[in-house]
Design a protein around this nucleic acid. Sequence first.
DNA 1: TATATTTGCGTAACTGATTACGTAATTAAT
DNA 2: ATTAATTACGTAATCAGTTACGCAAATATA
Lengths: 316, 316
Amino acid sequence: MNFFEQTGKVAIGSRLRMLTDKVTEDGAQIYKLYNIDMQPKWFPVFYSLAQGEEKTITELARDIGHSHPSVSKIISEMLKKGYVKESKDKTDGRRNLVSLSKKGVEISKEIEDQLIDVNAAVEEISAQSQNKLWEAIGEWEFLLEQKSLLRRVMEKKKERDSLKVQIVDYKPEYQEAFRALNVEWISHYFTMEESDYKALDNPQGYILDRGGYILLALYEGEPLGVCALIKMDDGEYNFELAKMAVSPKAQGKNVGFLLAGAVVEKAKSLGAAKIYLESNTILKPAINLYHKLGFQKVAGKPTPYTRCNIQMELVL
Amino acid sequence: MNFFEQTGKVAIGSRLRMLTDKVTEDGAQIYKLYNIDMQPKWFPVFYSLAQGEEKTITELARDIGHSHPSVSKIISEMLKKGYVKESKDKTDGRRNLVSLSKKGVEISKEIEDQLIDVNAAVEEISAQSQNKLWEAIGEWEFLLEQKSLLRRVMEKKKERDSLKVQIVDYKPEYQEAFRALNVEWISHYFTMEESDYKALDNPQGYILDRGGYILLALYEGEPLGVCALIKMDDGEYNFELAKMAVSPKAQGKNVGFLLAGAVVEKAKSLGAAKIYLESNTILKPAINLYHKLGFQKVAGKPTPYTRCNIQMELVL
DNA sequence: TATATTTGCGTAACTGATTACGTAATTAAT
DNA sequence: ATTAATTACGTAATCAGTTACGCAAATATA
């Protein structure tokens, strides 16, 4: 098993599967040892029924943590052996009440010695181990219940990505990147308009000199995201979030979220009251992002862009 | 998961399987998160090949602990994706040398971040656990390697059975059992002979009074095994092990071994030099038992029994 | 040198689970 | 009282592995 020590914990799934196989392997042999005509996979169902009460297929499935078709199949196999009997529920014709037959009850008595011995064997292994497998499984079940492995990995990914992403202020040397990243997506989804060129060709005069700001997200030093805060001339101290662009290369690297978050923080620290933005509903990831940051849909503002079909606002 | 706390450790296989499923479940999603077009089940093969060298199907299978058909199938799937390339070994036409293609090497670089994050996620779970699953698996793998679960269960069974089996000296009240148990097997496999009746009908006169002994094995108080030591009249102080019978009810309960062992001990403690016995090779379990106790095949002694086709002897 | 055994590996069938889907019975809603 | 939604559960297809088997190539043996 040296292999798994090399791969690292990613392989925990594979490794678990192999141990499962090894533990399960001997199952059939063990029943044979006790002269019990039973398949290992029947055991959970069998045990659940041995508690005495009649149970439906679905109840059994929930009990033992299998899907109901699995239980359905197991029951039909046990039926063939005569270990269980079925009866229709009188008040509910869909339900199939299953219980141990006389023969099944006999088997359940014969099986007791086996349970004792297997238990003892497992305990023996436990006693020779520093780390208790049984308890470790319980802890994992609990922790995965709280938060799935996928969710945990997503968090780790975000953490790591965040370290690589650096938010910086605009400098003239970034003008080309600011232009290119915006042209890329605008011309992909729509067509460039008059006001686009104005802002992208001359961010200094059109945005910064008018009291606006531009932030960039550098991923490992390379500018992969840009976003402008344009001062609005509505009499109050509000900004429009505009010209936000993230390179497809940065997809899934959390760049958009970090950048937009930084922009909101910037506006807040400047003492702005509101951030306004215009977008289009076909840009679903963007809309989702704005929503996540707290932007709410508003309507009715005049806009120079034909591509705008949704307007949003965040009160700071 | 309350269910498993009730069943006891017998269900460790089921429980392991369910945890395996849960851990594996998210696998495909995780690859998607990193935009990697790969199936979780490919990972072990992929990882093994990423070490650089060309490997054959069989080498890969051994490496990752799968069967070779499994690897064969995985390789053919990865081939379709263009992640690996095959080439025939020039010196051995059977071998199929597999290595990562250029595309595969690219993927292996992309995958690195994912390995880091999954590792971190697993470590996080570990840090929140008292019992380390990863290490516990390692310990189980080691201990099962040393001695399989089946073997351990067998030992536990023997221990428990031995406690229930009691070896006692013959008393007149056991004469019926002594007779019945012997008649059962002799008439099942052969036919009762003159000398059988003599010994079975009158053990006192025919065996005990002539310096012989009879031991019985009681299983939970019930006599299920009998065995006689008949003093031989060959001039030395030797015994013949005879009229050994174990009830089919006691099958697999270790009764035969305990009984025969006790008989050998008895002879030894009496200062006998040898134990001799006659049997038939169709009684395989019996022959095995004698063999296990150290009896060796001998030949040439005269015998009154037509059913005897093998003679054995144990020098004490 | 001929023959037997071993090895590599692909195909086929099986296994123990799953998800997907369909049908019938029950319950809820209008 | 219909109609819609939910529930119970069986069948079929799928999945990721396995064992069984057979062929061809290589190696060992007589």
